[in-house]
Design a protein around this nucleic acid. Structure first.
Length: 565
RNA sequence: CGGGGUGUAGCUCAGUUUGGCUAGAGCGCAUGGUUUGGGACCAUGAGGCCCCCAGUUCAAAUCUGGGCACCCCGACCA
């Protein structure tokens, strides 16, 4: 490709709306253009990268036994009503009506469609296992698109679905995919961390996210440097710090605590650490007010709470709802309460003689102990794991990082096959639901993550396997006939050797060409100038390196080919 | 949905507080010339629905009301 012909223009300054590095560089390199919030056009350079990533993904999916197919974006809403996921997705689902007023949606994912397809074709255990995938556009009306290609409303995703006869089969498929994912990200030049993840309302037991560690990541990841435990903070377990030991249980006692509202104030007022207090937090779970109690030094993890309650939707209660339930915010506790659902974190039984609210404005109780002084309806781990807590496996303090989720694998179990009647006959002639898994990779997000991970202050540094071109020839002196002739010949020779080459044949100064080359981040830069022509050499520099190598012109093609090995 | 912010040339931004002549700068773009190893220089030029609608006024980029879009934080995100 000739730079003089390439569609897209580089920018010296990044548009003001871009904040994350990948977003800025994609805009400055002229690779993407925003059409609406979370909706982008990809210009030729970006499209080449996306196709390369897709191809790597495709090869690995095929190698793992996957079969590629293609399903529609446009889907009848009825299918979603059958599984109840129209409600689960809620506003995130783009819906529309056709001319006959039939309701449709733009697929945010394809479980419904593929299960509908598979149930018509799979009859017997002999038809299993099956691994089917597509690389397809998805639509999700995200509440807040952000970070350029990091979080968008229309995006390309590879989604593979596994169909097995039983849990053991699912485990095999799951491990195959985990291994394939590792290879994919490795081939794309991206170090990733597989972390335990929340599987959501639908998912089964196991789920892993593949995280690219980057400061711009949206996810908090906790990991243990000793045993390798790693989990999304949404789901991580941890050993909490121990509160001061208590010799014996003391009698419950009321104390006046004028204008004490927060845990910090209470701890200060009573001169005890927050870990000797219990805090009350009020949530609304699927419309029902829930009273949540947790040790004062810990935070509630809403996702764990949601899972513990088996709720579709959990949110903090507002002031009104709290008042109407007769609760005293700032002085609430489960002591003496019974007409409301009470949930507690396991931490309330680690420690003793807690300070809690008296359910009376201006008063608290000291020496509250579970279960002596109060009961709960549900006790579970609903605490947010934090950096510094102990690793649940080996007790080492957990470390934290930010991560970009580029892949996610789930064990779905039989949720969809049961809802939609996807069954098979066992060798014994028994009808059973198919056991499913699903496995996604965001192609565009992977591109963005690759930039987040591979750049310097001059621009992008593409990992070679996904670079839009491998070689970038800078012809310095576009009006100098020997230089032009030499650059053109080099360009032809590289191309006819099957190499992907970008030729900067523009009438621009050396500075402009070098800066653009650094910005675009092609792995190897080849300089042809009056000097190199006079010496019969070409100057070859790796994007990551500082110093170039001089290579005799006649050896250039061989040298360059060897670079790619 | 809550909080904050921004909409003026392709990009970055001034001008809006205190209404007033033909709306500006830098970069980019076009043409010509001089340059050519890290974003060169000179000259000339093109380019504007000042986000939209309504209002106030002799007069609105500027004031008022309403709307829209985009960005950031949070909520949310099988």
């Amino acid at each position: 490709m000739r730079m003089s012909q390439l569609f897209g223009r580089t920018l010296r300054q990044a548009p003001a709306e871009a904040e994350t590095v990948s977003h800025q560089l994609l805009l400055r390199a002229g690779m993407i253009h925003q059409v609406a919030a979370g909706v982008y056009s990809c210009l030729p350079l970006a499209w080449r990268v996306l196709r390369k990533i897709e191809q790597i993904v495709r090869e690995e999916m095929d190698a793992a036994g996957g079969q590629e197919l293609m399903m529609p974006v446009l889907q009848p809403l009825e299918m979603w009503q059958e599984t109840g996921r129209d409600v689960a997705f809620g506003e995130n689902l783009f819906t529309l009506k056709d001319r006959r007023q039939r309701r449709l949606c733009l697929g945010p994912t394809h479980e419904e469609v593929i299960v509908d397809l598979v149930r018509r074709h799979v009859r017997s255990y002999r038809d299993l296992p099956l691994l089917l995938y597509q690389i397809q556009t998805k639509f999700r009306d995200e509440p807040r698109p952000r970070g350029g290609l990091i979080r968008v409303r229309e995006f390309t995703m590879k989604d593979l679905y596994s169909f097995d006869a039983d849990e053991a089969g699912l485990e095999v498929s799951y491990q195959k995919m985990m291994a394939a994912y590792r290879r994919i990200f490795l081939r794309c030049g991206l170090p990733t961390l597989a972390v335990e993840a929340d599987s959501g309302a639908i998912g089964g037991k196991d789920s892993h996210e593949f995280m690219v560690i980057a400061d711009s990541g949206e996810n908090q990841v906790l990991h243990c440097s000793r045993c390798g435990y790693a989990a999304n903070a949404e789901r991580a377990e941890s050993l909490k710090p121990s509160p001061p030991p208590q010799d014996r249980l003391l009698p419950l006692q009321e104390v006046a605590t004028p204008s004490v509202k927060t845990i910090a104030q209470l701890a200060h007022f009573l001169n005890m650490p927050p870990s000797r207090t219990l805090k009350a937090v009020f949530y609304v779970a699927d419309g029902e007010l829930v009273f949540v109690t947790i040790r004062g030094d810990l935070e509630v993890n809403e996702i764990k709470l949601k899972r513990a309650l088996g709720a579709m939707d959990v949110r903090l209660a507002n002031e009104d709802e709290v008042k109407r339930a007769g609760l005293v915010a700032g002085s609430a506790s489960p002591v003496g309460l019974s007409d409301i659902r009470r949930v507690a974190d396991l931490s309330i039984s680690s420690g003793a003689n807690f300070a809690v609210g008296a359910n009376k404005e201006g008063y608290h109780l000291v020496n509250a102990n579970y279960p002596r002084d109060f009961q709960v309806d549900l006790m579970a781990d609903i605490a947010l794991a934090e950096v510094g807590h102990g690793c649940p496996k080996c007790q080492t303090p957990l470390q934290g990082s930010r991560g970009i989720e580029v892949g996610h694998v789930f064990k779905l179990g039989t949720f969809f096959s049961e809802k939609l009647g996807a069954t098979y006959l066992t060798a014994e002639g028994v009808q059973k639901p198919i056991v499913m898994g699903c496995y996604g990779i965001g192609i565009g997000r992977l591109l963005a993550a690759a930039i987040e991970q591979n750049h310097d202050n001059r621009g992008i540094i593409w990992p070679a396997p996904i670079a839009p071109y491998h070689f970038h020839i800078c012809a310095l002196g576009a009006e100098n006939p020997p230089v032009v002739a030499s650059a053109e010949e080099l360009y032809r020779r590289l191309q006819s050797s099957g190499l992907e080459v970008l030729l900067d044949d523009r009438d621009e100064s050396a500075g402009v060409k070098f800066n653009d080359a650094d910005l675009l981040g092609i792995p190897y830069r080849l300089v042809v100038s009056p000097k190199t022509v006079a010496n019969g050499v070409v100057e070859i520099k790796e994007r990551r390196e500082k110093e170039p190598t001089l290579v005799p012109l006649e050896q250039a093609v061989d040298y360059v080919k060897a670079c790619l090995q």
